[in-house]
Nucleic acid binder design. Structure first.
Length: 508
RNA sequence: GGGCCAGUAGCUCAGUUGGCAGAGCACCGGACUUUUAAUCCGGGUGUCGGAGGUUCGAUUCCUCCCUGGCCUACCA
């Protein structure tokens, strides 16, 4: 026995008793010759949804009968027994519908069997749409069929399921009883559909590139490693699809995107899940300034569609995504938010001291650009609550971005920061194969110096670049983060259906 | 990795300055033909996260462990 007993299958006596009672009912049902797991109830087009019924019969008066017979299927969520007439709430995917069961309609035997069923059981019913005397739209049950017997008790109906551990480990229970949780994932679906619609309407091609990559590139992160037996080679779960999408630019696709799952073998937190969803978009012949406008349009379109407004009530305050968003360079942001005047002209030592003074830890191999970015991330990023385009990231930490001709040592790169987090990242893509090789070699030096996340040289990618990649803007949007912003959630686990958790302890 | 907080019935939560463990919902039995957190009557179902320790006695105090949350670090 261990702390996870209630989750890991060993049962305390109370739970065992509840389950035992339901199993006994199950046996009783079987012995009556009734299938507890019927294969089907009706064809899909014959089954109504509860919210459709609510709309269609909105004018039906209390106490009135519609004369219309419908089929409905759902899960029993509540029973109110009143002797010879009872009320049963069932939930389908769209919401709740009340069933009215009457002994004089069903006959004694069928009536009693219906009430013998438990909350959690799935049933299909047929009957007339009526409105009860108290005004609740209902189906007067004339026929029903048990579709699936539930063998475990549901969480409480009024408070729902609060325990965050059970919510995440048994997300189906959370979604089953907590409408707010369901709403988050419905919104997530709307967001993703809206992103696709937007990109498709702009003529982008949706593509799929390898998740198993021989060289994990396109971002600075530690990868998961796996092995292909037949080829006898190690492969990496991608940390980003970037280098493959750029190969497609070389190929001549000038507008491509991939909604992709990335995998990074790093810490788990309220902002990090080992696998997360990213949208990457590449468009030829544009630069990062264009991508900033593109991003504004993309995000505002999606937010309007999902929320009907560009204002979001967030734990960190009211956020407005009205355009145009603030724009500033990283150095300007450091001046504005941290009152720090930094530049690449300063000595490395001086920058190190400033970092130390603000308790910003830096990697021993970090150069000036990296240190400036570190200071920005620790001191400034959390303070940027309203959407802000932060421009010109140091070249040292941007090995795939084009250098900014107006700001030596910096690149044409921006991130969208909001609610104190990075939401999106974009640059004018580096398409010079000679420069790209040099950047990779600089990364290799960092790797030698102990920076595990430094980007490895991808010879095959360089070969592609040598054939000629058109100038292009690239954009990555963290979809989980975007959903967090759109739904006002402050933990990434709330917007991922099955977030990664520690394995349940097996006990001692 | 470090700090703080939490874990009590199937669920949501009280509580015990160390002395037989509590409520609501759910569940079981009964009444009820219009309820909707139905109501009424009766029933408490538990290894108080786990293992040790202190004690006449530990769910309560101590130590360690497990799991989760928040903060922090890491994730440039």
């Amino acid at each position: 026995m261990d702390e996870g007993a209630h989750l890991s299958g060993e049962l305390s006596s109370r739970e065992a008793e509840l389950i035992k009672a339901r199993r006994e009912k199950l046996n009783q049902i079987i012995s009556m010759g009734v299938s507890p797991y019927a294969s089907f109830f009706a064809s899909p087009e014959q089954i109504e949804y509860s919210d459709d019924l609510q709309r269609s019969y909105s004018s039906l008066q209390p106490g009135a009968s519609s004369g219309k017979k419908v089929n409905l299927a759902g899960r029993i969520m509540a029973k109110r027994e009143h002797g010879k007439a009872s009320f049963i709430d069932i939930h389908d995917s769209t919401g709740k519908m009340q069933l009215i069961a009457r002994e004089d309609v069903l006959g004694k035997e069928k009536y009693e069997f219906l009430l013998f069923l438990d909350t959690g059981d799935w049933i299909g019913v047929a009957g007339e749409v009526i409105r009860s005397k108290r005004g609740e739209l209902s189906v007067l049950v004339e026929f029903y069929e048990l579709l699936s017997k539930s063998l475990r008790p549901l969480p409480e109906k009024w408070h729902g399921l609060r325990d965050t551990e059970i919510k995440m480990r048994r997300r189906y229970l959370d979604l089953l009883v907590n409408a707010e949780s369901r709403k988050i994932f419905e919104k997530r679906s709307v967001i993703i559909r809206s992103l696709r619609d937007f990109l498709d309407s702009k003529g982008f091609l949706e593509v799929e590139t390898p998740i198993l990559q021989p060289v994990p590139g396109g971002a600075a992160a530690k990868p998961f490693i796996t092995h292909h037996n037949a080829l006898n080679m190690d492969l990496y779960l991608r940390i980003a699809p970037e280098l493959y999408l750029k190969r497609l630019l070389v190929a001549g696709f000038d507008k491509v995107y991939e909604l992709n799952r990335n995998f990074r073998n790093e810490g788990i937190s309220t902002k990090h899940n080992p696998e997360f969803t990213m949208l990457e978009v590449y468009q030829a012949f544009v630069d990062y300034r264009y991508m900033a406008i593109f991003l504004e349009e993309l995000i505002t379109t999606v937010l309007s569609e999902v929320n009907g407004t560009l204002t979001i009530e967030h734990p960190k305050g009211r956020i407005s995504f009205e355009r145009p968003w603030a724009r500033m360079t990283m150095l300007e942001a450091l001046r504005l938010y941290a009152d720090l005047d930094l530049s690449l002209e300063m000595d490395l030592e001086e920058l190190r001291e400033i970092a130390e003074a603000y308790e910003v830890e830096i990697h021993p191999s970090a150069g000036k650009g990296w240190i400036i970015a570190e200071i920005f991330e620790k001191l400034v990023e959390p303070k940027i609550i309203q959407p802000t385009i932060v421009l010109d990231y140091p070249e040292e930490i941007s090995p795939l971005a084009r250098e900014n001709p107006n700001a030596p040592g910096f690149t044409e790169r921006f991130e969208l920061i909001a609610t104190g987090h990075e939401i999106a990242n974009a640059f004018s893509e580096l398409n010079d194969p000679i420069d790209q090789r040099a950047r990779f070699l600089a990364q290799a030096e960092k790797r030698m110096a102990g920076d595990e996340a430094a980007q490895p040289l991808d010879e095959d990618f360089l070969t592609a670049l040598e054939y000629g990649m058109p100038p292009a803007g690239g954009l990555g949007v963290g979809i989980d983060r975007l959903v967090m912003v759109a739904t006002g959630c402050s933990s990434i686990r709330e917007v991922i259906l099955f977030p990664q958790l520690r394995r349940e302890s097996q006990g001692e």
